[in-house]
């Protein structure tokens, strides 16, 4: 007999995601913060030199809003351990890495979907509210790259959330560590001055807005995205290894 298809496990995780209120609260916060801050930022920026600068200004809400995606990701794991439902889940799907992969697929799709919709809205805000010589064409490669990077960063933050949730198994702990890593430590280190602190800040998975580091030491976008991706994947693999080994 062939086993249960992976798509069934993904379907199950999708059912779990939409059937708890926390998902909708976090999603609401994300939409509100990113949308409102984006509209305000675009409205208060009268002119910009280049179209991607105008778009990046409108995306500024992502800097804080991404924390909501971190929470969506980590809750898919920590809520199971907090409530004890991990027992039901792992009895139904005893292959644990497969389960974690299914959760990751669902969270990545959800984060990408939200980020794409919000990035498109921010783009429209920039296009209508900020004056740029030559306008803000949607086909401009620099604009598209800025928007694409934003969606990618949002998905990676969701993966980092899942990973931290799996390693720490505690909502409070994962929220604290996650916020420290992406939002608190990078600017604190950047402000503290010494050269090594700046290097360290650059090595943290700091939240990114478009091509730029948010309130932290700037890095080029390929380096910044690579750092975030390395943290997300590294923490995920660590989580998967621990998940396989630990008792429930």
């Amino acid at each position: 007999m062939r086993g249960v298809p992976f798509s069934a496990v993904v379907g199950s995780e999708w059912t779990k995601l939409w059937s708890v209120r926390s998902t909708w609260w976090a999603t609401g916060v994300f939409v509100l913060v990113v949308g409102a801050v984006g509209a305000l930022a675009a409205a208060s920026t009268d002119t910009a030199d280049r179209p991607e600068v105008a778009v990046q200004t409108a995306l500024i809400g992502f800097g804080f809003g991404q924390l909501a995606l971190l929470v969506v990701g980590l809750l898919t794991v920590t809520a199971e351990f907090a409530s004890g439902s991990a027992v039901s889940t792992l009895t139904a799907v005893p292959r644990r890495t497969r389960l974690l992969l299914a959760k990751t697929v669902v969270v990545v799709v959800w984060c990408l979907l939200l980020a794409v919709v919000l990035a498109a809205l921010c783009f429209l805000a920039a296009r209508t509210l900020t004056a740029v010589p030559g306008g803000v064409p949607p086909t401009d490669p620099a604009v598209l790259r800025t928007l694409g990077l934003q969606a990618g960063a949002a998905a990676l933050v969701g993966v980092l959330g899942i990973a931290l949730g799996t390693v720490l198994r505690s909502t409070a702990g994962a929220v604290m560590v996650g916020t420290a890593l992406v939002l608190v430590l990078p600017p604190v280190l950047a402000l503290s001055g010494p050269r090594w602190a700046e290097r360290l800040a650059q090595a943290l998975p700091m939240v990114r807005v478009g091509q730029d580091a948010f309130f932290s030491v700037p890095t080029s976008w390929p380096v910044g995205m690579a750092v975030v991706a390395a943290w997300a994947v590294g923490a995920w693999v660590l989580g998967a290894v621990l998940h396989e080994r630990r008792d429930v």
């Binding site: 249960v4 379907g11 059937s19 926390s22 409530s83 039901s88 799907v93």
Partner: peptide, 29 residues
């Protein structure tokens, strides 16, 4: 093959009974 009841609290308190069972059913197709 196996039906198990290990912990009566083994479920998310915010989910409905139907959604809880639906998620479990889907996980095994």
């Amino acid at each position: 093959r196996v039906g198990a009841l290990v912990d009566p609290r083994a479920r998310h308190p915010g989910r409905s009974a139907y959604a809880h069972l639906l998620a479990l059913a889907r996980s095994n197709a």
